[in-house]
């Protein structure tokens, strides 16, 4: 049983940070939306290689706990910049939160549904009436949009953050990120050929994921800082693409610092998949930018 220590710390910080009213212009606290892993290698490199400081930024990377709401962290001022799913960001904006999307890091969707072949689920339609595990931390928008669109009635089982229920056979299928949990399943001894996979991107929902947000006010105040951060981060990613071993070393160091289980094999997989997702590919848009089409797609999903 995991005692949510980070949760306790977060409670403490909440009151602490509120007392800090004024922030120095170039001091940036960046919080990615999850615990340390290769998904954030570009940020680590940008920091480590001095791309941020070169851009006049004093960046601190602060990871949240597994249960934290990243938008909340931003709106509460715990971080100057956060990385969040585009969908989450837009939903928050829709709720009226004053946050600004200023960069789109991952251009492609890594979200997918995985099921054991032996379960007989050959298409998403087969999910009807079956148990689908979905993490409780909010990866559900796109899945629900897809299920709704296809009128598939599944039995949703909320899961905190492991794949054990799936492995134990407690659910018939599970939503996973291709770069992360999918590979975790494989690394628990399930062979890829024993799995059926259904990618959202193949189901007409290639929705961009990780995006950078800041408070609208902060952006207005100093848009150059935000753009510089985005640019330095992309530079970091570029470096990661060319120095994967170095990137993995760095990631593993961050994970160790956070007392997280780590292994290079998994992080390499993640880095490679994330790098793929960063590359716009056929999408008519530059790195770090959000295309109008994708904006429309996301808008339609959340409507």
């Amino acid at each position: 049983m995991r005692i949510p220590k980070s949760f306790l710390i977060a409670l403490l910080l909440l009151t602490f940070i509120q007392n800090i009213s004024a922030q120095e212009r170039s001091k940036i606290v960046f919080t990615p939306q999850w615990q340390p892993q290769a998904q954030f290698a570009g940020y680590y490199i940008a920091l480590e290689q001095g791309y941020y400081s070169q851009a006049g930024l004093d960046v601190t990377i602060k990871h949240p706990s597994a249960t934290s709401d990243i938008i909340k962290i931003l709106t509460m001022g715990e971080a100057d910049i956060v990385s969040a799913f585009l969908i989450h960001g837009m939903k928050a904006q829709r709720r009226g939160l004053p946050i600004k999307h200023f960069a789109q890091m991952l251009q492609h969707s890594s979200l997918m549904i995985v099921s054991r072949k032996e379960s007989g689920i050959e298409s998403v339609e087969d999910l009807g009436g079956r148990k689908l595990g979905i993490w409780s931390s909010g990866f559900d928008d796109l899945i629900f949009a897809m299920l709704e669109e296809r009128k598939i009635d599944v039995r949703i089982v909320r899961i905190l953050n492991t794949v054990n229920l799936f492995l134990e056979g407690g659910v018939d299928a599970m939503t996973v990120m291709h770069y992360n949990e999918y590979n975790t399943i494989v690394n628990c001894g399930v062979n890829p050929e024993e799995l059926n996979t259904f990618f959202m991107r193949d189901l007409g929902l290639n929705v961009p994921e990780d995006a950078l947000y800041c408070l609208e006010s902060k952006y207005k105040e100093n848009p150059e800082v935000m753009e510089a951060f985005a640019e330095a981060t992309l530079k970091g990613w570029e470096y990661a693409a060319n120095h994967k071993d170095y990137a993995i070393d760095l990631v593993v160091r961050h994970m160790k610092n956070a007392n997280l289980p780590n292994n290079r094999v998994h992080q390499r997989w993640m880095l490679e998949r994330v790098l793929e997702a960063i590359d716009p590919g056929e999408k008519p848009v530059g790195r770090g930018k959000l295309s109008k089409q994708d904006l429309q797609l996301v808008t339609s999903v959340i409507n």
Partner: peptide, 17 residues
């Protein structure tokens, strides 16, 4: 509120199975 053991492995898996 912040510790929902219902979705934790130690509870959820034996409960479901």
């Amino acid at each position: 509120e912040t510790y929902n053991y219902l979705i934790m492995d130690w509870y959820q898996i034996p409960a479901m199975l």
